[in-house]
Amino acid sequence: MTSFSVEAPAKINLTLHVVGKRDDGYHLLDSLVAFAGVGDTLDFAPADTLRLEVAGPTADQIPEGENIVIKAARLLAAAAGVDKGAAIRLTKRLPVAAGIGGGSADAAAALKGLMRLWNVSLAPEALTKVALSIGADVPVCLAGRPMRMMGVGEVLEPAPALPPAWLLLVNPMVPLHTPPVFKARTGPFSEADPLTAAPSDAQALAEALAVRRNDLTPPAILIEPVVGEVLAAIAATADCLLPRMSGSGATCFGLYAGEAQARAAAARVAAAHPAWWVAPAPLLGR
């Protein structure tokens, strides 16, 4: 088999309601998850041993230790009962610990690519079990399309189709790890409020999202006040239909009707904050 590539797009929590907490301390979510047309890339080629090369503009942000791609490979091999190698190259473009599922997207892409390279398959339940053992966002990243994500990430339902729209993703290059954000959250739990109808256009999507929220925004700002600055910078751009934080932060996004508006907003934010990571991208609505 010749080499091939698998994309690992950024995961975007368009909404995120914290609806409860399990006895083991894990929080229960109800989240509308979509993906953006920007992300990492994994290249696969046959090899006698399992090896990983990491490159790209944010490669130096990856913490020391076993990479999540290698973890995914070892868990897949064990679940499938195979002992095969692979040469994997990860081109890292997304910031790390950023609320857009960069590591989870890489792991999901690794599972997809290695099942193809090794010519193996797992039953859906078994694959979900492997994905969830890697991370809570890996199952939804495996789905790779708009989904309603519930539980701790293991319960997925297809979401209504999303309309054509563009996003501006902005990260202040400050890592924000998930556990402290959940720990800092206070107040009552939210009610589930899933999107039940397909919005007709970007404006209708913005209106639907505006009556919902990301419950992790206040604790994220409490831990890293710069998140509030990012939201304000996005909100101040022309034609922004909605600013919001994704996941547990620190990446925030603006929603725009089209590419021109998103790129103009990106230019404005990048000029004002040259140290921030700024990426306009289409919303992948199907």
Rank of each mutant, 00 (worst) to 15 (best):
C240P: 06
G254Y: 02
M147G: 00
K11A: 13
E157M: 12
A250D: 11
A271C: 02
A206V: 02
Y256C: 06
R212Q: 10
A55G: 11
A107M: 09
Y256K: 07
W118K: 14
A34G: 05
G25I: 05
A232F: 00
T237R: 14
V152A: 00
A8K: 10
F44R: 10
E259P: 02
A197K: 06
A204G: 14
R213E: 12
A235C: 06
I234Q: 09
A143F: 11
P243E: 14
D106Q: 10
L29M: 14
A36K: 09
A266W: 05
L169G: 11
E259S: 10
V226L: 08
P243A: 15
P280K: 03
R51L: 01
V120R: 12
A272F: 12
A279V: 12
A10R: 09
A47E: 11
C240H: 05
S200I: 02
T178H: 10
L283D: 15
P172S: 13
A108Y: 05
A220C: 10
A161C: 06
A86D: 03
A47I: 04
G113C: 09
E259N: 04
I234D: 08
A72P: 04
A107Y: 08
V152P: 00
V155I: 11
N67H: 15
P274Y: 07
R74F: 02
L14F: 03
P95M: 13
G56N: 09
P172H: 12
G247L: 12
L122K: 14
V96N: 01
G228R: 14
L76E: 11
Q261I: 05
P158I: 07
T58V: 13
P160C: 11
A80L: 09
L205F: 07
A136E: 12
P164R: 08
P57N: 11
R22I: 05
R51P: 00
P124G: 01
M150N: 14
A108K: 04
K71M: 07
A265K: 10
G25E: 07
V269T: 06
L127T: 07
K183Y: 06
P179C: 08
D23Y: 00
A105N: 08
Q61C: 02
V54P: 00
E125R: 00
I68H: 03
L114S: 04
K92D: 02
V54A: 01
P218H: 13
V138L: 05
S248V: 06
A72I: 03
R148M: 15
A233F: 03
R116V: 13
L176M: 12
L50P: 14
G187W: 05
V211C: 13
G247Y: 13
D23G: 11
F182Y: 15
L90M: 06
T2Y: 01
T251M: 08
K84V: 11
P188K: 13
D40L: 10
Y26P: 12
V181I: 02
V138D: 06
T2I: 01
G113Y: 09
K129H: 12
L169M: 14
T49K: 12
L14C: 01
V170M: 02
G101N: 11
A73P: 11
I12K: 11
V33Y: 04
P158L: 08
T237E: 15
